[in-house]
Design a protein around this nucleic acid. Structure first.
Lengths: 356, 356
DNA sequence: GCCCAAAGGTAACGCGCGTTAGTAAAAAGA
DNA sequence: TCTTTTTACTAACGCGCGTTACCTTTGGGC
């Protein structure tokens, strides 16, 4: 009799399937112990579970919408499967490619990448300490390793806490040389650029140089000299001028070079932004690229190189490769394996477009 | 006697301080219970700990180099303090600003941002399913909310799992209109751009238009028309031409506009890449910017706008703001608070440079 | 002298999971 | 029939922490 009045409140106890489903729930549903479920899900071979119950368990997982709790797993297994990467998200264009490379590689290795913000530029600015705090937070998450990436190739000071966990530097190196690092091979890149110009028949080559204090400038110029030397040529001191690393700087440098009595037939710009300015100087003089003057850049800043007219032939910085290699190196390190070299150099490939 | 030979093996048992220090260790060192330590560290007011023991505990924390285990804390407290953001890291320049904005805001709110890769472009490509897997991984980490960001303003299809947790869309919206979203106010942006030109005295304005299927093109053009209407003007159909969203596209469009009998005195380019091409077309004709022709862009792609000569006046997309607002909205959502609007529009500010 | 309250703590459970040591039943020798 | 091995599991502990409920002083009011 009492049953004849259906209790309305119990009409819809149907849970949304997932929220808060645990292994114990799955075990109950499948009529086995929690241990059995754990064994099946991490398919440890050492324990023997019959094919039949295994299926039953997997089915329960499916219908209940069970989703493992990564945190609990990490706690119990003592491994988080996380790497941390600290970098300036801020100065966009470059860092992001490093992250992408690292991210992709981490994904392959079933690792998760925890990205923490930094403000390297602000070493003494208002955000002082942000970076240390970021590293601290990453360590609280028990990352198994740390990646430290710079937006341009240079020496850096890393927060001291990084020493508590394997660490790899990307696109930078520490002053004391304690930590393994991955950097672009600037020298080889400069060489490849100039070789391309030589191959196109140019022998009189102008160089728009960068601030000579940064590793990029030193390496690229060195590579340039090497290539010339191999062809029995030398760099005419009159043909090498420095400028600010901007389009305006490139424009002015290009003007002084182009207005000399014995004008070069090709220009090696140490970065793309300066090449952008050089384009203007060249066009202003009624000269055609590449017919009258060939131009080659460095950095492969997509937004510039791929949209200049004509599109710029340039040497690319291998950001994605460095990111990926960083993760691989970290994997070796955390596994206790030896790494190939303390400082690994990655090639800078030539990107042919239409300015040579 | 036996003591006279110092055992070399025991010479350096000094641990590096931190690795594996737990609350129990701190408690022992301070001579209190683990509970007391927990109370002090999370300074819960309800429990009373004397100032003296409190100091003793904090001191022990310091000397032992104790660092809380975020995973364990999350497990016990049932809140991870994480938000997940899924976006294409790939198509760099834009996504990164959204991330930065979100990251900064999250940092303020003491939340951690977990970034997962996506390949929206590959909806049917080889990476099919990457995005679903990414969301799945984020949920396994028990993120408290999800941000889904697109690299350009458009409609998207989100993985169904997102419904399990509060979700906010950034720079995009879902076709069914179920999820709250944050988008740039394209219309107001277009309006602001044209108003600037009008204010400079231009009445005959050419428009380099985008593919009319995307929200950006529709909105910006609408705003443009509004501004003109308010000034009692109309858009001359002859002065509006579409092209590919590239520098080449902009160049060609600009050519057709400039070569008409009654040339405009200003050009509104619906994005900066096209403005870049327009610059070439203008300079080629011996015209000066902004004296003969004023140019205004849209997007504020730094690498272009800040390096064109003269530097481009343009309307900026509020990526950082949208990212930050996304996190704020998510915070309201997870706290169970109502949000201001289902679709929030963020202003696009005008960036004055030298092309008008 | 007795009761009560506050101050200053602590014991112990549970979060969701990995893992080791074991156990019960069936199969295989002997 | 009695051991031994194999198969198929399960009980129970611990990971590091938050939290609730309880316990012991000490001081004060009556």
């Amino acid at each position: 009799m009492a049953n004849s009045t259906p209790p309305a409140a119990e009409a819809a106890p149907k849970v949304t399937a997932n929220r808060g489903v645990t292994m114990a729930d799955v075990a109950k549903a499948a009529g086995v112990s929690r241990t059995a479920v754990s064994f099946v899900l991490s398919n440890r071979g050492n324990a023997s579970i019959s094919e039949e119950t295994k299926q039953r368990i997997l089915e329960a997982v499916q219908t209940l919408g069970y989703r493992p709790n990564a945190g609990a797993r990490a706690l119990a297994s003592q491994r988080s499967d996380w790497y941390g990467i600290v970098t300036e998200i801020v100065t966009a264009p470059f860092a992001v490619d490093i992250i992408k490379g690292a991210q992709d590689q981490a994904w392959l290795d079933r690792k998760f990448l925890l990205i923490a913000p930094s403000d390297q530029a602000d070493a003494v600015g208002p955000n002082q300490g942000l970076e240390d705090a970021a590293v601290e937070k990453l360590l609280e998450q028990r990352v198994e390793g740390l990646l430290y990436a710079a937006t341009f190739h240079r020496a850096v000071h890393v927060p001291k806490s990084v020493s508590e966990v394997p660490t790899v530097l990307i696109n930078c190196f520490d002053a004391d040389g304690k930590l393994p690092s991955i950097v672009p091979d600037e020298r080889a890149g400069g060489r490849v650029a100039v070789e391309r110009l030589l191959q196109a028949g140019h022998t009189r080559i102008g160089v728009i140089n960068l601030d000579p204090d940064i590793p990029a400038a030193v390496g690229r110029l060195e590579g340039c000299r090497e290539a010339l030397a191999e062809a029995g040529l030398e760099l005419d001191p009159e043909l090498i001028v420095s400028g600010y690393a901007t389009a305006d700087g490139g424009y002015e440098a290009a003007c002084t070079i182009l207005d000399q009595k014995n004008r070069p037939t090709a220009l090696f710009c140490l970065n793309d932004r300066m090449a952008m300015g050089a384009y203007d100087a060249i066009k202003e003089r009624g000269l055609a690229i590449p017919q009258d003057i060939a131009v080659i850049g460095f950095d492969n800043q997509e937004l510039i190189a791929a949209y200049l007219r004509p599109k710029l032939t340039t040497v690319a910085l291998p950001f994605e490769e460095m990111g990926a290699l960083g993760v691989q190196t970290l994997a070796s390190l955390t596994a206790g394996q030896p790494i190939t070299a303390h400082q690994q150099m990655v090639d800078c490939p030539l990107l042919e477009r239409y300015s040579v």
